[in-house]
């Protein structure tokens, strides 16, 4: 039982813990799982989250920073005042829980459609685009000398990597070819500064409460690069969940995002942001193709994966809206 193992672990780092209850798996692929549980304590229950690769799944996919790096980044963010859960413990091999870490559970909502529609978040919504700008500025200011080892990617290298991923699918898509050409023609070159880039900062990876952003999750694609990448990715239409006139996650305008970012003392480059938005749209489209391929060839022969393959055309229409807009 995982509760027994979690309790043995908690006794080491949570003074006074008397038990573990309510362990439940929230999500899980073959290589990574998220569990919620409560630590019983004389001062009241402590909500916690376990993020781990189960035993036997040590190898991270090539783009991922790895769970140890993720834990380090979340803790750094927490200490710097960027909304993030506090990391309570990094797993050690003798605990028999696999590789990963345990963090404080932050209450709130991550499901994008609920955040965009439910009354509970109505007061927060108009402020979120600007607030996200401030959060991203804080994240990009994290001290580089304290960061874990991370991959470093320029725009030019990213284009080549996506092109390779796309060609390996053997899935000729004229709209994707057009986007690749556009990206090469508009490659902004090396950015004037290199910072930490979250890599998957979007509506769906944020815990939102009635008071706004409470935590930034899913740091597994963190790397070093052009900070404008995060501002472009948060604007990709796929993360607006139907609110297509509000580019920042369906919450608000680019101007509000930029204002929040600059108010926190950092500069925006709107043309680089646009470049990364196009790149991000193509990136999600190619990922949809990857899902189709894994559905066909891999062990995960699920209907959900099959249907994600059919979402590539959403990114094609969004690319056309960006690159070849029709008259309004």
């Amino acid at each position: 039982m995982i509760e027994a193992e979690l309790f043995r672990s908690a006794q080491r780092w949570c003074h006074g813990a008397t038990g573990v209850t309510g362990a439940a798996k929230l999500s899980g692929g073959a290589s990574q799982e998220t569990w919620r549980f409560d630590i019983t304590h004389p001062d009241g229950p402590i909500g916690a989250i376990l993020r781990r690769s189960p035993k036997g799944y040590g190898a991270a996919p090539t783009r991922a920073a790895g769970l140890a790096a993720e834990a380090q980044l979340m803790q750094l963010a927490y200490e710097a005042g960027v909304p993030s859960p506090r990391v309570m413990h990094v797993l050690t091999p003798d605990e028999n829980l696999g590789i990963g870490f345990i963090m404080q559970r932050v209450e709130g909502e991550t499901i994008a459609r609920k955040i965009l529609r439910d009354d509970e978040y109505a007061a927060a919504r108009p402020h979120l685009a600007r607030q996200i700008g401030g959060v991203l500025a804080g994240l990009h200011k994290l001290p580089q000398d304290k960061l874990p080892e991370l991959r470093r990617r320029s725009a030019t290298e990213e284009i080549s990597e996506f092109e390779r991923d796309y060609r390996s699918l053997n899935w000729p898509k004229p709209v994707f070819e057009l986007a690749l050409r556009w990206l090469r023609d508009h490659d902004p070159g090396p950015s004037s500064e290199t910072t930490l880039v979250h890599g998957d900062f979007r509506n769906g990876n944020l815990i939102i409460g009635a008071d706004g952003v409470r935590a930034v999750l899913d740091w597994e694609l963190a790397h070093l690069g052009d900070p404008m990448e995060d501002l472009g990715w948060v604007c990709v239409n796929s993360w607006r969940f139907g609110e297509i006139d509000k580019p920042v996650g369906g919450f608000g305008s680019r101007e509000e995002l930029f204002a929040g970012y600059e108010a926190a003392g950092r500069k925006c480059d709107p043309s680089r942001v646009k470049f990364w938005e196009v790149m991000g749209t193509l990136r999600w489209g190619i990922m949809c193709g990857g899902m189709m391929q894994r559905f066909r060839e891999g062990p995960d022969h699920s209907m959900e994966r099959a249907m994600i393959g059919r979402r590539a055309s959403e990114t094609e229409i969004d690319l056309l809206r960006l690159l070849a807009p029709r008259g309004s």
Binding site: I244, R310, R311, S313, E314, E316, I317
Partner: peptide, 19 residues
């Protein structure tokens, strides 16, 4: 490309907001 893409969305995701 527009016509082809519109024909794909009509099958894949006719409720997609951009479409």
């Amino acid at each position: 490309l527009w016509q082809t893409t519109m024909d794909k969305l009509a099958v894949d995701q006719p409720n997609y907001a951009s479409y």
